[in-house]
């Protein structure tokens, strides 16, 4: 007990146990199980999001008794939905709650900007990410892997409303391709990345402004939703996923490029 490290661990353990007791007590139990049991989504707001019936369910949602089935039938091939994305998570991220996504993109931009500002530029001649010369296998394989990573990233962004994926996942894959290219000693045009990021951010704002001008709400869907299950079927979800994919890929790519140019 005389060892200060031991007493620190014991103190931390006691604090954590107390906090855990508080958390579990706040969650509460009902008959031995935690109170937050399995709820049906029909009794939640997301029930209306699943049934693509936010507009119709709005009176019911205020009364907190949205239980009735929606009159909109949705299945592959149905037309004229409020939101045509087959992937419901994508429809929430890029349509119903796209203003949240706008803030998310801004936060990512702020994080990258903060990283650039916090670290000073490297002074010496060695501008590479690694100090050693890259391996032969890495040098020869990097362009091929980069091409596949770009194609996969754009595909994931493009198909985000039909399959799992979306702008953020696709952008991360694109940035991985840039990472491999940079690790192999190749140069990547950082001005191109900055330009892509700027244009993608302005396009995001343009899509939002189009909704504001044409429909009255910022980021409201202005593109007609086609047949569910087809590639051009989801209104602004597809456009926003592509824009987010480009923007996130450019942001993370410039972050990776900055890693080689900063004093670490």
């Amino acid at each position: 007990m005389n060892n200060p490290r031991t007493s620190r661990y014991i103190f931390s353990l006691i604090l954590t146990v107390l906090l855990g007791y508080a958390v579990f007590a706040a969650l509460g139990t009902q008959g031995g199980t935690l109170r937050f049991g399995p709820h049906s989504p029909t009794s939640r707001v997301s029930g209306a999001m699943i049934e693509k019936n936010i507009e119709g369910a709005r009176p019911n949602l205020t009364a907190k008794n949205h239980t009735g089935p929606s009159n909109v039938s949705f299945a592959p091939g149905s037309k004229g939905l409020e939101n045509g994305a087959a992937n419901i998570v994508s429809s929430i991220v890029a349509d119903y709650r796209s203003f949240d996504t706008f803030g998310e993109v801004l936060i990512l931009f702020a994080a990258v900007t903060g990283f650039m500002l916090l670290l000073p530029d490297k002074k010496g001649k060695n501008k590479g990410v690694t100090s050693e010369a890259p391996n032969f296998v890495l040098v020869k394989a990097a362009p091929i892997v980069f091409a596949f990573a770009m194609i996969t990233g754009i595909y994931i962004s493009f198909n985000g409303h039909l399959t799992p994926g979306g702008g953020f996942a696709g952008g991360a894959v694109i940035a991985t391709g840039i990472l491999i290219l940079v690790l192999s000693g190749n140069e990547f045009n950082s001005q191109l990345l900055s330009l892509t990021e700027t244009i993608a951010g302005m396009l995001f704002l343009a899509v939002g402004a189009a909704g504001l001008v044409l429909k009255g709400n910022f980021l409201q869907n202005v593109i007609p939703t086609g047949v569910l299950g087809y590639i051009f079927s989801s209104g602004i979800v597809l456009a926003l996923n592509l824009i987010i994919g480009l923007k996130v890929g450019a942001e993370l790519g410039s972050l990776i490029l900055a890693g080689g140019k900063k004093e670490i």
Binding site: S40, T42, G47, A75, A86, N87
Partner: peptide, 21 residues
């Protein structure tokens, strides 16, 4: 199920999916 509308689901309803929010 996974919150993706596919043709394999029998009754298309909110009960079929986990909460996507």
């Amino acid at each position: 199920n996974v919150p993706i509308i596919t043709g394999k689901l029998g009754l298309p309803s909110a009960v079929n999916f986990v909460d996507p929010l």
